[in-house]
Simulated assay, not measured.
Amino acid sequence: MADFSIVPPAPEDEADWRRNWAAYLTRYTVTVEPLTTDIIWARLLDPTSSMRGFIARDATGRGIGFCHLILHDNTWSLQPFCYLEDMFVAADHRRHGVGRALLNRIIDTARENRWARVYWTSWNNNAPARALYDSVTGGADQLVHYTVKLLA
């Protein structure tokens, strides 16, 4: 039995989520305005938002990771697509199955809700994450990701 759980975010997860969010942003050398962080947290708790998420909690209930999902309409299906925008596991909990459990929870939720697709991107130099992703998906698809950054 795992010594962690994967659950939807709840108000009591806020401090741990903020700690992990800050570590995630530091890892990718990204700065996000405090107001943006506040709004992201509010969206994660809002059942009417297109943003969803999960929190990984250790056996004591402490948040050790998270994922953020964006549900959206698409032109290929009447069922929504799910974009996994962010996923993070605290450094001292990596390689213990937390990331795989987060991915499996996302996929199970997608099946339960009849979402047409779950997809995400990864930095090409993030070998540990890509090894996990390859083991879950069978490997990256043929799509190439392009970005036009309009705002910092």
Rank of each mutant, 00 (worst) to 15 (best):
D58M: 06
D58Y: 05
D58W: 07
D58F: 07
A59Q: 13
T60E: 13
T60N: 11
G61A: 10
G61E: 09
G61P: 08
G61W: 10
R62P: 04
R62Y: 07
R62F: 02
R62H: 11
G63T: 13
G63E: 06
G63Y: 01
G63C: 14
I64Q: 00
I64Y: 03
G65C: 08
G65Q: 07
G65F: 04
G65M: 09
F66K: 01
F66L: 09
F66W: 12
F66C: 07
C67V: 03
C67W: 06
H68C: 01
H68G: 00
H68S: 03
L69C: 04
L69S: 06
I70D: 01
I70P: 01
I70F: 13
L71M: 11
L71H: 08
L71Y: 02
H72N: 11
H72W: 05
H72M: 13
H72K: 13
H72V: 03
D73L: 12
D73E: 12
N74Q: 12
N74V: 10
N74W: 12
N74C: 12
N74H: 11
T75L: 15
T75E: 03
T75W: 14
T75I: 11
T75Y: 14
W76C: 09
W76L: 14
W76R: 13
S77M: 10
S77P: 00
S77E: 12
L78D: 14
L78T: 13
Q79A: 15
Q79K: 15
Q79N: 14
Q79D: 13
Q79Y: 09
Q79G: 05
P80E: 10
P80M: 09
P80N: 08
P80L: 12
P80V: 02
F81W: 15
F81G: 06
C82V: 15
C82A: 15
Y83M: 07
Y83K: 04
Y83C: 07
Y83H: 14
Y83D: 09
Y83V: 00
L84E: 14
L84D: 07
L84R: 11
E85D: 15
E85Y: 05
E85V: 06
E85F: 04
D86E: 14
D86F: 01
D86N: 15
M87V: 15
M87P: 05
M87C: 13
M87N: 04
F88Y: 15
F88V: 03
F88S: 02
V89T: 11
V89Y: 03
V89P: 02
V89I: 09
V89G: 01
V89D: 00
A90K: 01
A90L: 03
A91S: 12
A91I: 00
D92T: 11
D92F: 03
D92S: 13
D92L: 06
H93Q: 12
H93F: 14
H93I: 03
H93T: 04
H93A: 06
R94P: 00
R94H: 08
R95M: 07
R95D: 11
H96I: 05
G97D: 05
G97I: 02
V98H: 05
G99A: 07
G99P: 00
G99L: 00
G99C: 05
G99E: 00
R100H: 09
R100S: 10
R100D: 03
R100I: 01
R100G: 05
A101T: 03
A101D: 06
A101G: 07
A101L: 05
A101Q: 04
L102D: 04
